[in-house]
Amino acid sequence: MTPTDELRQLWQSDINEAIDQRELMRELERRTRNFDRMNRRRDFRDIVAMLVVAVVYFWFAVRAGTTFERVADLWLVVFCGWFIFYLRRYAKLSRKPVPEQTLDVYRQALVERYDGQIRLAKSVKYWFILPMWLGQMLYDIAYWVNGGKNIKFVMVTIFVTAVNALVWWLNEGPAVRYLKRKRRELAVLVGEEGVAK
């Protein structure tokens, strides 16, 4: 008997375990239902949030005293829509890969999900901070143009800029470092590195 035969015989001598098929189907249907419900809730929440924010800023735009304020409100309406659209689009791209791929492609896909999150965190300055900062600054400038105090204008500018800079730093610094560490751990767990093809 070759070592392979011996190992195979031993391996296949495992005690067979049986599972109740009706119970299995019930369990699978329950899990599928929960998954669908979770997706529906998330979609509903995103859409409601988008609509509420858009309606509030649109209402502000209608009631705005000056054109400058109206532009700032509309800018923020568009920005909120863009923000939710971007996150939902990204969420679709970062879903778990389909499991019927070959094992090496699947492993790479799992690791690449972290790459996607790292890219998202690194590009936050373009898709979140810059448009958000511009909208807030438009508000601030509108206040100043309408005769607001210089000192308040400067203070608000500094505060808004500092908060956005902090968000930028948190994403590009600690968040990216954390994601890179998680990516390394995953690569080790799934044995992604050093596979000879």
Binding site: E17, D20, E27, L110, E185
Partner: peptide, 26 residues
């Protein structure tokens, strides 16, 4: 593989085993 990965992220706590599914040694 992905279940192991998810568990690692969820801070490896014991998952309750459903009572409903019966296993039988043969």
């Amino acid at each position: 593989i992905s279940t192991l990965e998810s568990r690692r992220r969820r801070d490896t706590r014991e998952l309750p085993m459903p009572d409903s599914v019966e296993r039988v040694g043969r």
